Computed example of a mutant assay.
Amino acid sequence: MENMRYQEFTIEGRNPVLEAFRAGKTIDKLFILDGCDDGPVKSITREAKKYDTIINYVDKERLDNMSETGKHQGVIAYAAAYEYAEVEDILNIAKEKGEDPFIFILDGIEDPHNLGAIIRSANLAGAHGVIIPKRRAAGLTSTVVKASAGAINYTPVAKVTNITRTIEELKEKGIWFMCADMAGEVMYKQNLTGPIGLVIGSEGEGVSRLVKEKCDFISSIPMKGDIDSLNASVAAGVMAFEIVRQRLNKQI
């Protein structure tokens, strides 16, 4: 598939946005003029709630700055550049391949270049998919698609409302979770074989406390040097390939 077929696009105006929802387009974010609640806007918000779309109420200046046409009518939607998968789709891929599930869970990665790079690393490490949250995180914009260097065509990305609940549900299916954190035990000392989820936190805050508490391992990368930490996408790649190494050793 050609990446250029998947272009992030902005939809402006009440009728176009309403039609996009009714046509089943994936809307990542919806922006509505604060205080505007007439009939057409109520119809739009009703559709948005059906799909659990995040609604942001903003002032006119913000909408004007976002607008490309100057005819937003108080409503702007960001449509995803790529379709999202379901968590079950990711598990089914592992099942079809006869492999233990290997999943990336991203707790609030906001930089689209980082998200794209992580999807690329996930693909190269043989992970079966990536799970991202709906709130306070990058969605599948065209920047992400390009940064993934084609990996998005092969590695499904699921978007969930609650990361902690998703981890709980996956743990019930026998998946163990390792959380990347500088204060954790060095990953080389841990058994990272079997069904596993690699949890990577946001660029600034790291993995949130609630998510960290759900993880089975707190894992760190041994580092030397004079700066604080690795970029999130680099850390994800380093940890993913330690999982790959341990899986290969187990097969020998």
Rank of each mutant, 00 (worst) to 15 (best):
Q7F: 06
E8Q: 05
E8I: 00
E12K: 00
N15Q: 12
F21I: 05
A23R: 14
K25M: 13
T26K: 15
I27M: 12
L30G: 10
I32C: 06
L33T: 01
L33R: 02
D34Q: 15
G35R: 01
T45G: 01
E47C: 06
A48H: 00
Y51I: 00
D52M: 01
I55T: 00
N56I: 00
V58T: 06
D59E: 11
D59G: 04
K60P: 07
K60C: 02
E61T: 04
L63T: 03
D64T: 00
T69D: 08
G70H: 02
I76C: 04
I76L: 05
Y78M: 10
Y78T: 02
A79H: 12
Y82S: 07
Y82Q: 07
Y84T: 03
V87H: 00
L91M: 13
L91N: 06
E96M: 15
K97V: 00
G98A: 04
D100T: 03
F104I: 07
F104C: 12
D107L: 10
D107S: 07
G108Y: 07
N114V: 11
L115A: 11
G116F: 12
I118F: 14
I119K: 10
R120I: 05
R120N: 10
L124Y: 11
V130W: 08
I131V: 11
I132C: 06
I132W: 08
P133E: 05
P133R: 01
K134E: 15
K134L: 14
K134R: 15
R136N: 14
A137Y: 07
A138I: 06
G139I: 01
T141F: 09
A149Q: 12
I152M: 12
P156Q: 04
V157A: 01
A158K: 03
A158W: 09
A158T: 03
N162F: 14
R165Q: 15
K173P: 15
W176N: 07
C179V: 00
A183C: 13
G184W: 08
Q190M: 09
T193C: 13
G194A: 06
G194W: 07
V199M: 09
G204S: 11
E205F: 11
S208Y: 02
C215G: 07
D216N: 13
S220I: 05
I221V: 13
P222S: 04
P222N: 02
K224Y: 14
G225V: 01
D226C: 13
D226R: 11
I227Q: 10
S229R: 09
A232K: 01
V234F: 05
A236G: 06
V238S: 02
V238P: 08
M239E: 04
A240N: 07
Q246V: 03
I252E: 14
